[in-house]
């Protein structure tokens, strides 16, 4: 790369930056620096037996700030605690609901006959299920379903709560 004005300007910039080397701490500063470091190391070793909470707060300043924010405001601390407990309770309840009603999320591969029989033979909707039930009949649909292997065959059949529905008839 040939010398160009930009590089020449960088040279002046570098000379300017080199002036920062003259920025020095107060005289005698480094005489005590290492001694202070060693003193703090020794103090740290002595404090190594401090309680766990004290050491935790020491290593996590944000925890100390949080605690100091709560100290003068007991109401805030109480509200924070109530909020955390509420979240925990909500989470537990939600997980129990999912565990107790898994069938709501599983496809129904075997429908009771009385439910399927209530489906009108007329093709009234555009859904594939309605058209198949109307054209092929329920038995064949079930047979079709049963003849085809499904990934759900290996899954233990969950409890299914029958759902009643009525298909509106169009064109009358």
């Amino acid at each position: 790369m040939s010398m160009n004005p930009d590089q020449e300007n960088f040279e002046e910039l570098r000379r300017l930056l080199a002036l920062k080397r003259h920025e020095q701490p107060p005289p005698g500063y480094f005489h005590d620096f290492s001694r202070e470091v060693i003193t703090r190391i020794k103090a740290g070793e002595a404090a190594g037996n401090a309680p766990f909470l004290d050491r935790l707060v020491e290593t996590a300043p944000w925890l100390r700030r949080l605690w100091e924010g709560f100290e003068p405001k007991a109401i805030v601390a109480g509200a924070f605690g109530v909020g955390v407990c509420s979240l925990l309770v909500v989470g537990l309840i939600s997980s129990e609901r999912i565990d107790s009603n898994p069938g709501a999320f599983m496809p129904n591969t075997e429908l009771p006959q009385n439910i399927l029989a209530s489906v009108p033979s007329q093709t009234v909707g555009s859904s594939l299920f309605e058209r198949a039930a109307a054209d092929h009949g329920v038995a064949s649909l079930i047979a079709t379903n049963q003849s085809q292997s499904s990934i759900f065959d290996e899954i233990r059949r969950p409890y299914v709560q029958p759902v009643t529905f009525s298909v509106p008839v169009l064109g009358n």
Binding site: P25, F30, F33, S34, R35, I38
Partner: peptide, 19 residues
């Protein structure tokens, strides 16, 4: 020994942090 190590590099370390 660690005190000697600190003395060796204290100025450069401090200067970098200061800048």
């Amino acid at each position: 020994a660690y005190d000697e190590l600190v003395r060796l590099y204290q100025e450069r370390i401090y200067a970098t942090v200061y800048h």
